[in-house]
Design a binder for these strands. Structure first.
Length: 510
RNA sequence: GCUGCCGUGGACAAAUUGGUUAAGUCGUUGCUCUUUCACAGCAAAGAUUGCGGGUUCGAGCCCCGUCGGCAGUACCA
């Protein structure tokens, strides 16, 4: 079995494209097949430099490694359609010679006018069997005239001559049988005026030449699959025609319609794997990677957008997905892009990652913020926070107070909990802490708890919130004693002193 | 407009292929734990399976109709 992912380098690879690539990859791995990457750059007007590199980098980040493709090699190359240009003309010619296609000389202006005229009558113009005898093409001209037009060097297209009154059957792995009446199909252009093939021709020719056995692509291709079947038939390749599987669309997080790049900007969520910087700010996007996602979580999340294993297992590594994946379990209806679920997956991955590994991943953002920390410190730090944050990038933001003094106190809680009359007692606590020898988490827990019970004359509820706010500024956070231990004795005592003064001031203002 | 696809709680989704009281996860709410938040555990609320007919002892699954959503309808992919 051989599958392919065939994106067009017209910009950043949309997350839906990543899912298509993933499903192709999973199926290949599951069945012991080959995963091919092919770049469909037949539209030079929409070509965007850098897009191809982006695609490759995005796939690699997800762990999806093509086995054949541009820059990788393989025995069916080249894998860039612009480099296979010479092939398509021959096949198009073959189509003309066998009577399955014809030359068309209709100009852009003529076609635009046709469309406008039809629209004026509330109809939609379609270049199909019903009108091709009235158009400017080799079907309506005699052979010499055609020859002369071709020789004149004026641009022309080659259109597929769709047969009339036939039922085109498509058997789709996820949708079963889909039928199209050939009279409904238009005479699609195969070769464009610039000598490049259209998607339809290039795709079918390359899939055949590259011995692709399964075509897994988005649902938006389902309507044109009938044309592709017709092409396989016209070429006499029916017996090796690949099996088709059309994936359900990915829907917007809210509302109707398929997920678009606009949704990302609008909702402040990523819809691309990696960030993309365009000259135009409105075409620049933040990626899942830069947002702080773990690639494993993204892959896990993506896999469930339109597929599920039929069991209750939700967490899958890429390797496990390869094992569990099956086309039969791909759903038919559109899958909602649920960002909450994506976050949930990421947090699950964070919690499952061991502290040493996590520390390595978090370190760059800690250093970027201008902080320094040794490995032990980093491991304790991430260990304390990992079940309280959802992204790698959240660690520094949430736990900044491990690296620098508290920036702001949660005043509401201070007003409620700080009793200036207790200040003397809290001064005693500072002194008590200053006198401690062993500042390990265990000892801090034990000794401070004992002090509260035996010497403070106050309850846990009166002391610990104050301790927490003085050391971290917030009521949210890890175990107070563990936090204190990691901060170190001197730092804790100094924060307590600063805190007491600040709390008194807050109370006085109120 | 035409063609095609899809339609199960707010979201995803399962249902041994027609067989009891329609799983589970996310989200929401509550409880437990507890010094907070989170995690974890437990629990609750939430569905006349888009709607209407039909076949059948029995329908989320089959048939017909209907409505809705989406996609395609380019010398773009």
């Amino acid at each position: 079995m051989r599958v392919r992912f065939a994106p067009s380098p017209t910009g950043a690879l949309h997350i839906g494209g990543v899912r298509t690539a993933l499903y192709n990859y999973l199926l290949a791995k599951k069945m012991g097949g080959t995963f091919v990457l092919r770049i469909e750059d037949t539209d030079q007007k929409r070509y965007v430099p850098g897009a191809e590199d982006y695609i490759l980098e995005a796939l690699r980040w997800c762990g999806i490694e093509p086995e054949e493709g541009p820059g990788i090699g393989g025995e069916y190359g080249p894998y860039r359609q612009s480099e296979r240009k010479h092939l398509y003309a021959d096949y198009a010619q073959q189509l003309v010679d066998s009577g399955n296609a014809y030359y068309a000389f209709d100009t852009d202006e003529e076609l635009t006018k046709m469309r406008a005229d039809y629209e004026a009558e509330k109809k939609v113009f379609k270049y199909d069997h019903s009108v091709r005898r009235q158009m400017n093409n080799s079907l309506t001209m005699d052979a010499d005239a055609v020859k002369a037009r071709l020789a004149s060097g004026e641009p022309y297209t080659i259109r597929l001559k769709v047969p009339t009154d036939e039922l085109v059957n498509i058997s789709d792995l996820v949708r079963d049988k889909v039928q199209f009446q050939s009279n409904e199909l238009d005479d699609k252009i195969m070769m464009k005026g610039d000598g490049m093939p259209t998607y339809h021709l290039a795709n079918v020719v390359d899939d055949h030449l590259m011995k692709i056995t399964h075509v897994i692509r988005g649902e938006e291709w389902l309507p044109s699959t009938a044309h592709h079947v017709l092409l396989y038939r016209a070429f006499g390749w029916e017996d090796t025609m690949p099996k088709f599987a059309h994936l359900p669309l990915i829907l917007k997080p809210t509302g109707k319609g398929k997920l678009s790049k606009r949704d990302g900007a609008k909702l402040g969520i990523p819809v691309f794997p990696l960030s993309w910087n365009d000259d135009k700010p409105e075409d620049s996007f933040v990626g899942f990677r830069e947002f702080g996602f773990d690639p494993g979580a993204v892959v896990n999340f993506l896999a469930f957008l339109g597929w599920n294993p039929g069991t209750e297992q939700e967490m899958f590594s890429l390797a496990e997905l390869c094992e569990a994946f099956s086309v039969e379990k791909i759903g038919k209806s559109g899958a909602r892009f649920d960002f909450d679920k994506a976050k949930w997956f990421n947090q699950q991955y964070l919690m499952a990652t061991d502290n040493a590994q996590l520390a390595k991943e978090v370190r760059p953002s800690v250093e970027a913020a201008g902080y320094t920390a040794d490995d032990d410190m980093m491991e304790s730090f991430v260990g304390m926070l990992k079940e309280r944050v959802t992204f790698i990038t959240d660690f520094v933001e949430t736990g900044y107070y491990f690296f620098e003094p508290v920036k702001a106190y949660e005043e509401k809680m201070i007003r409620k909990k700080w009793k200036p009359d207790n200040r003397a007692k809290f001064e005693e606590l500072s002194q008590f802490i200053t006198n401690m020898e062993d500042f390990s988490p265990e000892n801090v827990t034990e000794k401070v708890k004992a002090w509260i019970n035996e010497d403070s004359g106050m309850g846990f509820g009166a002391v610990l919130p104050i301790l927490r706010i003085a050391t971290s500024g917030t009521m949210k956070g890890p175990d107070v004693f563990a936090m204190m231990s990691l901060l170190g004795k001197e730092e804790v005592v100094s924060r307590l002193q600063k805190g007491y003064d600040a709390f008194d001031a807050i109370k006085n203002n109120a």
